[in-house]
C-alpha cells in the first residue's frame, strides 16, 4: 500500500452564464482518478496541455479544492485539508512539497536565497539561526552550489541554478513527497540533465517519492517507476513504466508514443509512416476508446500492474485491433 492514495478524485469547475449568472455546466478538469504513490518511488503523470495533470498535483498539495473523492496520506483522510492549521494535519503539510515549472516566479524576488530556502524550515521546525544557516549550506551543497549563493537574490542566478534552488527549498522541510510540475520544461538540455540528476540523487539520499508531472515522455521515462497517461481529465492507461512504454494498449497512448521524435535520422521515413498509421487508427477507432460523450472509459486490468481504459462490453477489444491491423497491412 502506498503512503499517498488518491481515490476517485474529481475536480470540476463551474461554467457560469446566462442572465442570472447561474451554473450552466462544469469543466471536468479531473474526472475520477485513482492513484497510489509508493514510498521512495517516482510516479510519472503524462498528458498534453489541458489534460488535467497539473490539477491533480495542485489538489494533492491543496492549491485546488477537490470536488469529490479522497486523498489519503498514510491512511489519514487529508482531502482539502492541506491549508488547515490543525495540529493533526501539520505532518501532511510538512511532508508534501512542490517544485514549480517556473522557478523565477515561485520565489520572492526581495528575499535572499538564505531566506527562500529557510522559509519552510522556519515554518515547521524551531531551529536557531545558526542551525538554519548550516542546513541551508548543506542543502545548497546537495544541489551543487556554494555557500556564497546564500546571500544573493533570485535574479542573480541562471534558470538552471534557480530551478536547483527550487529543489533545495522543496527538500528543506524533510518532505516525503515532492510534487514536481514540469520541473525541467523551461531548461536547456544540458541544464535539464543536471536538475534531473540532482532530483534522483536526493531521492536516493532521503528516500523521497516524486509525483513527476510532465508532457515530455522522454523525461518521464527516465525518471519514473510507475506511469499514468492522462487525457480529458481521466487516465487512459496506468501501470509500470515498462508496461506502458513497451506494451501500450490504449490508442491515445500509442498516439503519444509514436509522436515522440525519433533520434535516428536513418529510420525517419519508416517512423513517419508508422506515426501516420497510428494517427489514422486513432481517428478511425475513437468510438472504441471513448464513450458517446467523448469520455474515457473506466480502467480495466490488462496485466500485472497494467490498467487500460477499454470499452466495457468488448473485453477482447485488443483482439479486434489486431484484426484491424492485419487487415490494414495486407
Amino acid at each position: 500500500m502506498g503512503f499517498i492514495e488518491v481515490k476517485d478524485l474529481k475536480v470540476h469547475y463551474p461554467i457560469r452564464g446566462g442572465v442570472l449568472n447561474t451554473i450552466q455546466d462544469h469543466v471536468r478538469a479531473v474526472d475520477g482518478v485513482n492513484l497510489t504513490i509508493e514510498s521512495g518511488k517516482t510516479y510519472g503523470l503524462v498528458g498534453e496541455s489541458g489534460s488535467g495533470k497539473t490539477t491533480i498535483g495542485k489538489t494533492i498539495i491543496g492549491l485546488e479544492k477537490a470536488t469529490s473523492g479522497q486523498i489519503f496520506y498514510e491512511g489519514q483522510n487529508v482531502t482539502n485539508k492541506a491549508r488547515s492549521r490543525k495540529e493533526k494535519y501539520a505532518a501532511y503539510n510538512k511532508d508534501v512539497q512542490m517544485i514549480f515549472q517556473d522557478a523565477t516566479s515561485s520565489m520572492n524576488p526581495k528575499k535572499r536565497i538564505l531566506d527562500v530556502i529557510a522559509e519552510p524550515m522556519r515554518n515547521y521546525f524551531s531551529y536557531t539561526p545558526d542551525e538554519i544557516k548550516r542546513k541551508v549550506v548543506d542543502l545548497l551543497e546537495i544541489v551543487g552550489m556554494n555557500e556564497e549563493a546564500m546571500y544573493k537574490y533570485p535574479h542573480e542566478f541562471s534558470g538552471g541554478q534557480r530551478q536547483r534552488i527550487g529543489v533545495a527549498r522543496a527538500v528543506a522541510s524533510d518532505p516525503k513527497l515532492i510534487i514536481a510540475d514540469e520541473p525541467t520544461s523551461a531548461l536547456d538540455l544540458s541544464v535539464q540533465a543536471q536538475v534531473l540528476n540532482f532530483m534522483r540523487r536526493i531521492q536516493k539520499e532521503f528516500g523521497l517519492s516524486y509525483l513527476f508531472i510532465s508532457h515530455d515522455l522522454g523525461v518521464v521515462q527516465h525518471m519514473s517507476d510507475d506511469i499514468a497517461i492522462m487525457h480529458k481529465g481521466r487516465f487512459v492507461e496506468q501501470g509500470s513504466r515498462k508496461a506502458v512504454y513497451n506494451n501500450p494498449q490504449h490508442i491515445y497512448t500509442k498516439r503519444l508514443l509514436s509522436a515522440i521524435p525519433d533520434m535516428d535520422p536513418t529510420t525517419r521515413h519508416a517512423h513517419k509512416i508508422e506515426r501516420q498509421r497510428v494517427e489514422a487508427e486513432y481517428d478511425a477507432q475513437e468510438t472504441d476508446y471513448y464513450d458517446t460523450d467523448g469520455r474515457v472509459y473506466d480502467l480495466q486490468n490488462f496485466g500485472e500492474n497494467h490498467l487500460v481504459a477499454l470499452k466495457p462490453e468488448a473485453p477482447n477489444a485488443s483482439l479486434q485491433n489486431e484484426k484491424l491491423n492485419t487487415g490494414g497491412e495486407r
Binding site: 541562471s158 538552471g160 538540455l189 544540458s190 535539464q192 540533465a193 543536471q194 534531473l196 540528476n197 534522483r200 536516493k204 515530455d216 522522454g218 523525461v219 521515462q221 527516465h222 525518471m223 513504466r241 512504454y245 533520434m263
Partner: peptide
Amino acid sequence: RSLLNSIPHELESDDDELHVIHGT
C-alpha cells in the same frame, strides 16, 4: 557529443546518470 549524451533515456541501472556539461 555532450549534448547527445544528456538526452534523457530509459535508465539501465540505479547509478545510471545523465551526462552533465561542466560549468555554464
